[in-house]
């Protein structure tokens, strides 16, 4: 933590960055995103197990971009997000400083996207055992049970779109749900519209989702959105051998193809 604060202070003092996007103390025992613009406020930065939000979401937000060049405190999913955003031409090399604090108080400063690629190639991305158990449970269900399971889940959706707001890859200034000619997604939160929205959200993130899990954590009714994301991530990996957030270049599964892509259902 001291390393992080020292580095943040130095960056701000040298004018190398205008804002440090990091974690600070929030309400109660929570950590929340803070935007440090003055060197003397660098001591407000914290980093511990509570710091889970993917801060890379702020890199594409107009209000944050207007502050000037940022430094970002990045967790593992945030590092992937940085590469994915770079691959989608949303951020540029040299346009930000990436700081990755370790649990032991160490700090890695990534100078280039290539360094992040190298780091991620050797880093494991553990999956929460409880979440994996839920995935196995749903996969083992019959199609009818799966339908009932998901109908039960999406009938609780209140269409608040918090999943979209929390998602660092949902940066379209005008989302399809705001289009009403045609109205792809009905406004009221009935089951049909909720189903359509959740399918659309998952599909629009197919090949782009870095599996940070912020959508699931943002959901006020606790819909396990990570399941939908992971099904697509798994299918992309097994069919197309691609994974989002591993390269800072265009590597989007659905914008490319291979003439030898295999399936077993087209006659």
């Amino acid at each position: 933590m001291d390393e992080l604060r020292k580095k943040a202070r130095a960056l701000l003092e040298a004018g190398e960055v205008r804002v440090v996007i990091g974690y600070g103390g929030g309400t109660g025992d929570r950590a929340r995103a803070i935007f440090v613009r003055e060197p003397e406020r660098a001591d407000e930065l914290i980093f511990d197990g509570r710091c889970r939000q993917n801060l890379a979401i702020y890199l594409t937000r107009r209000e944050v971009k207007e502050l000037g060049k940022p430094a970002i405190v990045a967790t593992l999913p945030a590092l992937k997000t940085v590469l994915q955003l770079a691959g989608e031409f949303q951020i540029a090399e040299g346009g930000l400083v990436v700081l990755a604090p370790g649990a032991d108080g160490s700090l890695i400063e990534f100078k280039t996207f290539a360094d992040i690629e190298k780091y991620l190639a050797g880093a494991a991305s553990p999956i929460d055992p409880a979440e994996q158990a839920e995935m196995d449970r749903v996969r083992a269900m019959s199609p009818d049970e799966r339908w009932k399971y998901w109908l039960g889940q999406i009938s609780r959706c209140i269409k608040c779109y918090a999943c979209r707001q929390a998602c660092p890859m949902c940066y379209c200034p005008r989302c399809t749900v705001e289009c009403n000619q045609p109205q792809w997604i009905p406004v009221p939160s009935h089951e049909l519209g909720n189903l359509e929205w959740n399918v659309m959200r998952a599909m629009h993130l197919a090949g782009r989702c870095v599996d940070c899990g912020d959508c699931s954590r943002a959901c006020p009714v606790g819909i396990p959105l990570y399941l939908l994301n992971r099904v697509l991530i798994g299918d992309i990996e097994s069919n197309f051998h691609q994974r989002a957030g591993m390269k800072a270049e265009v590597d989007y599964a659905l914008s490319t193809f291979h003439p030898d892509d295999r399936e077993n259902f087209i006659r």
């Binding site: 339908w147 599909m203 006659r267």
Partner: peptide, 29 residues
């Protein structure tokens, strides 16, 4: 059609996972 094929591979898997009856959707060339 190559792009479409990729999309259907993923979409079909997602529908199946959500319990939507993929036997009702026939893809063909």
């Amino acid at each position: 059609n190559f792009h479409a094929r990729r999309r259907w591979i993923l979409f079909r898997g997602l529908l199946d996972f959500m319990g939507i009856d993929v036997e009702r959707v026939q893809f063909s060339w």
